[in-house]
Structures are given as C-alpha cells and as structure tokens.
C-alpha cells in the first residue's frame, strides 16, 4: 500500500488521533496486515507516538502484524465448539501445518486463527477456510480438509 492511499484513508478520518483504531482497521481491510512502514506513516500523520501505535496494534485482537498466507484457516474455539472437541481439531491442525494460532507458515501457505464464536454452534466444531464452512469436524476430518489446500 503506498503512502498516498494511507494518506487518503487518514484524511477521510480528518486526521484525528482519536480515529487511530478506525484508520488501522481500514488500512488492514485493504492491505490484509500492518507492516512497520505503514505504522510509521500513520504515527507521523496522526501525531500519535509509535509506542502508542505499537500497543494499539498488539492490544486489539483484530490487528495482524505478520502477512497472511494464501489460505486463512479459522477454527472456532467458542465454548460450544470447545466442549464438542475443538481443542483436538486445533491440536491436529497445528501439528499438521506446524504453526500456532496467529501465525503464518514459512511458505506463506497458511495462516491459522482461532476465534471465539463463529455463531454456527449447531455445526461445531467448525473450521472456516476462505468463507467456506466445514462442519462437525473430527481431528481426522480436519486433516483431510486442510490437505486439500495447496
């Protein structure tokens, strides 16, 4: 994302320091993650200290400071999915692709995320990949699903 676009987004929010979170969310919506250079630009334009921006970008759960892989795997770890065995599914997927939630693998193939409730508890444990919901997953089924992605 180039500086002009960043500036446009910032201008849309009147360059107010109080819009920091909204500005970062909007940038991330387009850029999918927040590289350091972008954070520096935002800090300069909004007159918010880098320390404050670092905290913001790591405090709020929506922000991502590493690039996304080609496939984003969301595994629901809401309580309902948890009591229906989501932990086993998460463990299996972690072992299979070698990363923990919040990380992207070295080949940039997968990004793994867990979430608090996808609102599809009737289908739990649920995995969502690229908008497609895989329902009632057992660890073995989860493995098969993930293996299909290249």
């Amino acid at each position: 994302m180039d500086n002009d676009r960043i500036d446009q987004i910032i201008d849309k929010h009147q360059g107010e320091a109080s819009s920091l979170i909204q500005v970062l969310l909007e940038i991330q919506r387009e850029n999918s993650w927040l590289p350091k250079e972008i954070l520096e630009r935002v800090s300069e334009k909004l007159q918010v200290s880098l320390a404050q921006i670092q905290h913001t970008a790591t405090f709020y759960k929506a922000f991502r400071l590493v690039p996304k892989g080609r496939h984003e795997i969301h595994i629901c770890n809401g309580t309902s999915c948890h009591v229906r065995g989501a932990q086993g599914v998460i463990d299996t997927v972690q072992d299979l692709i070698g990363i923990r939630p919040g990380q992207t693998d070295l080949d940039s193939k997968f990004t793994l995320e867990t979430c608090n409730c996808l609102g599809r508890c009737a289908l739990g444990p649920v995995i969502e990949i690229e908008g497609k919901t895989h329902s009632k997953m057992s660890p073995a089924e989860a493995k098969d699903v993930i293996k299909k992605y290249e």
């Binding site: 107010e16 320091a17 109080s18 819009s19 920091l20 979170i21 909204q22 970062l24 969310l25 404050q52 905290h55 913001t56 405090f59 709020y60 759960k61 929506a62 922000f63 608090n116």
Partner: peptide, 25 residues
C-alpha cells in the same frame, strides 16, 4: 456503526468508551 478492534474486555463500559476515543481499551 462503530467497528470495534476486538477483545473481550472492550465490552466493559469504560474500556469500550476509551477505545471509541481511539485509546487503549
């Protein structure tokens, strides 16, 4: 509509309002 930045604690009123003001929640 105000899109929140994510995090359970944001539901708490003073945290919610701090975050709407662009601060740490």
């Amino acid at each position: 509509v105000y899109i929140d930045g994510g995090g359970y604690v944001l539901g708490e009123s003073s945290s919610l309002m701090a975050s709407m003001e662009g601060k740490i929640g």
